[in-house]
Design a protein around this nucleic acid. Structure first.
Lengths: 367, 367
DNA sequence: ATCATCCTTGAAAGCGCTTACAAGTGCTGG
DNA sequence: CCAGCACTTGTAAGCGCTTTCAAGGATGAT
């Protein structure tokens, strides 16, 4: 056995039709389940298809129906849970809609623009992260061709954007720290790296209500960068009693290194993050952070894209999903066990920004 | 402006040719960069393409060249870093090879077999995780049609498999625990859930060298399951001085809950995991675990698949990549700071199993 | 028995692109 | 000045599928 009958590229709709003794039209109708076929014919076709192990050629169908039945998704990378969750939500919804998803990871690619163009070639529309610098180019290049949707970025004419609330959440988080009596807060992360980080920084500044705030510590998001920043803190180069980090990865690595260096968290310095990654609730003290509805963001993206592909016009402006403050020990709150995710439901508080906004809020959860 | 010229599905190779005043063949040649075109023509075509904002229809090309230029990847889910890394490696390599990747997440799908069949329709070959129960069916259904490759599963005739070392690593890890004087080890995780977990359990048993071992604690991989198991431990229902967990998620949730319940790790009980996720090095004590070359596995999968698509015959049996023991505090070793990943290079130790094996080893890293 | 109707089927015309193949152009060497 | 060659270009034949349209067969009403 194992008659190594490698690669049998045959078995087209023609061979199936021939074996079944019907026309290719009938085969097509049976395969699509489009009806109008007698039971007898259906049986014959199904039998023939099974015998030949018929796998239709998607490209031929796509060409004929003039639809790829696929959604493209461009992510910068896939480190950490943020992008994974986004992808999960996106894929799940896309699959429900009968669409395949073609994934492109931008980081490390030589020529992202080229790859995105290639991608556009095989999908009906695509979703990109706002932090991707190619967004604009692509938007232009594809304008009027394929629907494009941006997550956590700025809307442009004809290009819808969706995102999670940043400004208000960051403001509340910062205010919370101020409420704990912290006075020298430092924002760690580069606002220029992504629009949502910029929004968080804005919220951070806003919470200071005019008080002068130091410049943000512009470092990348990697663990290693957090660690080396923590070393600078340990060396006494940095003056602060609280670090507001652009994401949890950064917060965790900083906190860990500081603790190793003998600094007490939160007694000596508070550390807070953003995203509520898994590790955030396993470290001691638990990391205070902000939870985003990332999976929903992914689902929503797939949904909106599908609408657009079906011909709906781009909605104007930005749709914003609410985020949720998660208070644990690292900000100075009384530490409490937090083995299960908090489950408070978010109720919109109805704030608005200059841009058209549909809903936005942040709810407080003590865990 | 923003002349909302929604959806301009036009601009085919014909319109470009017409605008440029050349034949479609020339346009095709320019777009493919296949050469044999004068500079003047190239310029005209490029200009026309840009003006029309020409996006070629991938399906038409695929049909003509009879290649999808896409790799399919079927993952059970995307929780935790394991699958993400796999995906990163896979996508990276596939992109280098000029292939798109179409992703399918099996969990939560009504009819996975159907979805996989749909996927097969639009890719040149596909890679599946061994833990997927559809593997066999699909393998059959696609046999001789499209190359299929399995990660962390069992090879079948005509279906290559690749994976990371499990048996030996688990054996060493277990022996290490025994070396610390632990006597009542418990394996936490269900060997039936995936072939690689089964292998680890085998290694666990083997390390006991004939001593009787208790049945594994057959629980799923979710954090919540770990927590409720830990509650049983705290309730006194479980007798053990070390937990060998099927993965880090499980280990972390158990350790965390135990600590909250006043159990000291590793003094009262040791806990070890598998995978070396990020959180493993931020918790206190650091989690002793086994690192798998997951990204490499993904790359290798894309590579092998590409070979097969190009016509290479399936390699026989299983290729195994080495894993690496990472000792931190949770097993009873002296705790040491471990902010950076260990970087010891693996040297094959040349062990073999019944199956054809290419290389396998586990190296020790103290961190 | 006749005709209108419905259901089933097949023939055939694309879908937009690639790629032989043939034809045309401008050179070079003899 | 022309045969021979290298380049460029265009023509046209598919790639495998969907779908329109018309034809045929069966059915029911009259």
């Amino acid at each position: 056995m194992a008659k190594d009958r490698q690669r049998d590229p045959g078995a087209t709709i023609y061979s199936v039709a021939e074996l079944a003794g019907v026309s290719i039209a009938s085969v097509s109708r049976v395969m699509q389940g489009s009806g109008g076929v007698s039971d007898k014919t259906r049986q014959k076709v199904l039998a023939a298809a099974k015998e030949l192990n018929y796998v239709p050629l998607g490209a031929a169908r796509s060409l004929a129906v003039r639809h790829h039945e696929a959604h493209g998704l461009v992510l910068p990378e896939l480190a950490g849970p943020y992008y994974s969750e986004l992808l999960i939500g996106f894929e799940t919804r896309a699959a429900e809609l009968g669409q395949s998803v073609v994934l492109l990871l931008a980081d490390g690619k030589r020529d992202v623009a080229r790859d995105v163009r290639r991608l556009a070639t095989r999908v009906d529309g695509l979703v990109m992260l706002g932090s991707l610098c190619v967004t604009d180019m692509v938007a232009q290049g594809l304008h009027g061709k394929k629907p494009v949707l941006v997550i956590a970025g700025h809307p442009q004419p004809g290009i819808e954007a969706i995102g999670a609330e940043n400004h208000q959440g960051a403001r509340e988080l910062t205010a919370h720290l101020l409420g704990h009596g912290r006075r020298r807060l430092l924002f760690v992360g580069d606002p220029a790296s992504a629009p949502d980080v910029a929004d968080r920084y804005e919220g951070f500044v806003a919470a200071h209500e005019g008080e002068p705030t130091p410049d943000p510590v512009r470092i990348p998001f990697r663990e290693a960068d957090g660690a080396s920043f923590a070393d600078r803190v340990l060396g006494g180069d940095v003056e602060a009693d609280a670090f507001v980090c652009a994401n949890d990865e950064l917060a965790l690595s900083i906190m860990s290194r500081l603790q190793d260096g003998g600094v007490r968290v939160p007694e000596d310095v508070a550390v807070v993050g953003w995203d509520d990654v898994m590790a955030a609730r396993y470290v001691r003290p638990g990391l205070t952070t902000v939870r985003q509805p990332v999976k929903e963001l992914g689902r929503l993206a797939a949904d909106r894209l599908h609408e657009r592909i079906a011909g709906a016009p781009a909605r104007e402006g930005l749709e914003i999903l609410p985020t949720q403050l998660v208070l644990r020990g690292s900000c100075g709150c009384a530490a409490a066990p937090d083995a299960k995710p908090a489950t408070a439901s978010a109720k919109p508080s109805g704030r608005t920004t200059g841009r058209p906004v549909r809903k936005a809020s942040s709810k407080r959860t003590t865990a």
